[in-house]
């Protein structure tokens, strides 16, 4: 399959009063055409930073220290403003975690959709045409009562409806790739399921690729083809979804899986000691080393992401040969 988005050795740092926070450390990441990719890891491990650097919407105190991001042969980091705006308008859409702050509270849903469409779709002939498109869009995200919703302000809608509107907004901009940053975290389980089913349907129907960031592992499992596990700004393991859940290799992946509460009831998460390292002075080797129960002296040297077989790579000294 053809590659759509390729991130190579990306290093992103934030300026802070204590020095530079070295958040992303040599992150390499790939999304192929029509592929569903999951990105998992605990809060603060750089998942959102990675998504934001793809769209170049990082906060002003950030520095892209090193690395390349290719989107369909366009180098996003070197691209000029117009190219970036064009990509944001037409190719990559993003769904944010908090639908309330992603919508402007002062404008009706209608106006926000109207604006989004006006900038990203070129062949609008008339006002009626636009109206038709908006209603069609709302139908697609399963908002049936479109008349009322179009005339509502965001605060008049429930959390689930707001997220649907956000998805509709993102859809206007994404002809290729959808970045979903914890799209269901703030919603109830029943609504989570609905939103996820909707996203799956839309992505399949439109032939989009999607990057789903979440720490709800069960959700990710049902949704994606391939998973990247991130810890403290490094990709520690990547494999097909089944592989990650059936034979996780990296100690962090195992830890993450053991922390998920099980319906079987035998849930006793072990080894949850420690916390994310300080990004100002991260450990030079494997960043998980301080928390890892299987660590040895090798771990003070940084392990590379080692390809074990066709669809399973892991960055850990426990696997592979000496030369790594």
């Amino acid at each position: 399959m053809e590659s759509l988005l390729r991130v190579e050795d990306l290093n992103v740092r934030y300026k802070s009063y204590r020095g530079e926070l070295k958040v992303l450390d040599d992150v390499s990441f790939e999304v192929k055409v029509r592929e569903k990719v999951g990105l998992i890891g605990e809060s603060g491990c750089g998942k959102t930073t990675l998504l934001k650097s793809i769209l170049r919407i990082l906060p002003p105190n950030s520095i892209i220290y090193k690395g390349k991001i290719f989107f369909k042969n366009i180098e996003i980091i070197k691209a000029n403003k117009n190219e970036i705006f064009k990509i944001r308008r037409e190719n990559i859409g993003m769904i944010f975690q908090d639908p309330m702050s992603a919508l402007n509270p002062f404008f009706k849903v209608k106006d926000q959709l109207y604006d989004a469409l006006r900038y990203s779709v070129h062949n609008i002939k008339s006002q009626q045409d636009l109206q038709q498109m908006i209603i069609k869009l709302l139908k697609e995200v399963a908002l049936s009562d479109s008349e009322r919703i179009l005339e509502s302000y965001p605060f008049e809608l429930s959390g689930g409806m707001r997220q649907r509107v956000c998805i509709a907004l993102a859809l206007t901009r994404s002809n290729d790739l959808l970045l979903a940053d914890e799209p269901t975290t703030n919603l109830d389980v029943t609504i989570q399921e609905q939103i996820l089913n909707l996203l799956r349907e839309l992505v399949n129907k439109r032939g989009l690729s999607i990057v789903l960031v979440s720490h709800a592992l069960g959700m990710v499992k049902e949704f994606v083809d391939k998973i990247y596990v991130m810890y403290a700004g490094q990709i520690v393991e990547t494999a097909s979804t089944d592989k990650i859940f059936s034979e996780p290799l990296h100690p962090y992946t195992k830890l993450l899986l053991s922390a998920v509460p099980r319906l079987t009831g035998r849930w006793k998460a072990e080894g949850l000691i420690g916390r994310l390292p300080d990004y100002v002075n991260p450990p030079p080797g494997c960043r998980f080393y301080m928390r890892c129960q299987q660590s040895n002296s090798n771990c003070k040297i940084k392990p590379k992401l080692l390809k074990l077989n066709k669809d399973h790579s892991v960055a850990c000294w426990l696997y592979g040969d000496e030369e790594h």
Binding site: N197, F245, L263, T264
Partner: peptide
Amino acid sequence: MLFSSIPVISEDEKNLKPKKITSIGE
């Protein structure tokens, strides 16, 4: 409905869930 919408990560959990009731509406 609440049960069947819990996302799970293993097969034996899936078997524990009651018959699938798709959540509809809010």
